[in-house]
Design a protein around this nucleic acid. Structure first.
Length: 265
DNA sequence: CTCAGTGTTCAGTG
DNA sequence: TCACTGAACACTGA
């Protein structure tokens, strides 16, 4: 579930469970793919006994700020998630790391598909991949004039540019489609072809969509019924919006785009 | 059995 | 050098 709103929901959850608490015990698995450049032994040693001061996030990356560096950095890939529970038997399937806290709770990072990554870094925000990100789509969206300047240099389809994390950090496939749907812009439009009014609309919808999704804890049942989100899944040729407009599915920028030709120009 | 998929990276092309 | 495209990655679930 991991675009910015889902990762922010995880950040809030972890902050609630871990903040100002000590990590008493750490369990690891041997997964050389998800463990990116760090051994289970080093990761456990870095975490055990540490106090969590706060939990940080930029784009789709999340990290724990401990009372001593280095810090663990998590990327969720397609299927990464955190779970909080009380007993070992409740450990989620595909768990990669479990921390037990001074409150007795357990926190695990799990990832079925293994596109997720766990790193150990001295200064996460100053090192790749986080240092290469653009503005954060929740707290860092620039003024319309500056955003227009960024887009003016790009001739790729706006859908592809929205997914470019070096520009819009945190935007993923469903957020990008939702923004273009609500702003009434075709995903095929070269980014540089957007008018100033369209850039303003795109910016306003991005801010509103991300803010709402975060406010409801990324619980999609609480997204407005008019959102494309509820109807975009599965390449269903008969899919329609809440106003009975036909939804088209096609590959743009290497991803499935769901959009409404009758409404997006 | 086949295919799509909430993401990123890398090789190849122009 | 840079922007862009498409394949590859690993695995589940429909």
């Amino acid at each position: 579930m991991p675009e910015l709103p889902e990762v922010e929901a995880a950040r809030v959850l972890l902050q609630r469970v871990l903040r100002r608490r000590r990590i008493l015990a750490v369990e690891t698995t041997a997964d050389p793919i998800v463990y990116a450049g760090v051994t289970p032994r080093r990761l456990a040693a870095a975490l055990r006994g540490r106090r969590v001061e706060r939990v940080g996030r930029k784009g789709k990356h999340l990290w724990l700020e401990l009372d001593r560096r280095p810090w663990p950095v998590f990327h969720f890939g397609m299927t990464g998630r955190f779970r909080v529970y009380a007993r070992e038997e409740e450990r989620p399937r595909f768990w990669k790391l479990e921390m037990r806290t001074s409150s007795g709770k357990r926190v695990a990072f799990a990832d079925a598909r293994r596109f997720g990554r766990i790193r150990l870094q001295q200064h996460p925000e100053k090192e790749p991949p986080i240092s290469a990100l653009g503005f954060d789509a929740l707290v860092g969206v620039p003024p319309a004039a500056e955003l227009a300047r960024l887009l003016a240099r790009r001739k790729a389809p706006i859908k592809a540019v929205l997914l470019d994390q070096t520009v819009f950090a945190g935007v993923g496939n469903w957020v990008a489609d939702e923004v273009l749907f609500q702003a009434r812009i075709s995903p095929h439009r070269p980014a540089a072809s957007l008018t100033p009014a369209e850039v303003r609309a795109l910016r306003a919808r991005l801010i509103a969509i991300v803010a709402h999704a975060v406010k409801v804890g990324a619980d999609s049942d609480r997204f407005p019924r008019t959102w494309l989100f509820h109807r975009r899944w599965g390449r269903d040729a008969s899919a329609v919006t809440s106003r009975a407009e036909r939804i088209r599915h096609e590959t743009i920028g290497g991803r499935t785009a769901a959009w409404v030709p009758g409404r997006q120009r």
